[in-house]
């Protein structure tokens, strides 16, 4: 998996890893927009450049095994990667794809990831990730979930 450095166009390899207690010192609301400490009861993953420590993005999620579904709770990029002047591209997409991989690994053809973004972002997510909409919930299922995994997980040689 990789991200793109927008200033140079360079492709940078990344890792997605579980957040540890010691990470919370640097995960402030100012840099990551939400109070991530309230998510400790759930799984939280961080995206970093391979071999580095700086957290570029975070995602928290809840597994709902009886529905073969993973619900994304919070997702964010660091403040430097927000908006028109962001440093790297593909941070959020990689985090979504990583959770999609967990869902397919656990549930195969029944796999589903879901989220409920602000209404202003619904169309953006539907177009970018080919998500379905049901009520307020956007979901990614087979076959589209496999396309998203392939789109972001194609550089492991």
């Amino acid at each position: 998996m990789n991200i793109i450095e927008l200033s140079s166009g360079n492709v940078i390899p990344i890792e997605v890893l579980p957040v540890h207690e010691s990470d919370f010192k640097s995960i402030t609301k100012k840099r990551y927009f939400f109070n991530w400490r309230t998510e400790k009861a759930f799984e939280i993953l961080k995206l970093i450049i391979r071999g580095e420590h700086e957290i570029l993005g975070l995602i928290s999620f809840e597994r709902i095994p009886n529905e073969c579904r993973i619900h994304i709770r919070l997702l964010t990029v660091s403040v430097e990667n927000k908006g028109d002047h962001k440093k790297y591209d593909k941070i959020a997409g990689n985090l979504i794809a990583y959770v999609a991989k967990i869902a397919v690994m656990d549930y195969a053809e029944l796999a589903c990831i879901s989220l409920t973004p602000k209404s202003a972002l619904v169309n953006h997510y539907m177009e970018k990730y080919q998500m379905n909409i049901t009520g307020k919930t956007l979901s990614l299922e087979v076959p589209e979930i496999l396309h998203v995994i392939n789109q972001y997980d194609n550089d492991e040689h």
Binding site: F33, L75, G83
Partner: peptide, 25 residues
Amino acid sequence: KNNIDFGIDSRYRSKTEKDSESNQL
């Protein structure tokens, strides 16, 4: 889009909301 695309707060506000969305989905 870029200015609001920094993150998602996708947490259910209540159990009722979660159950209702889950059933529909």
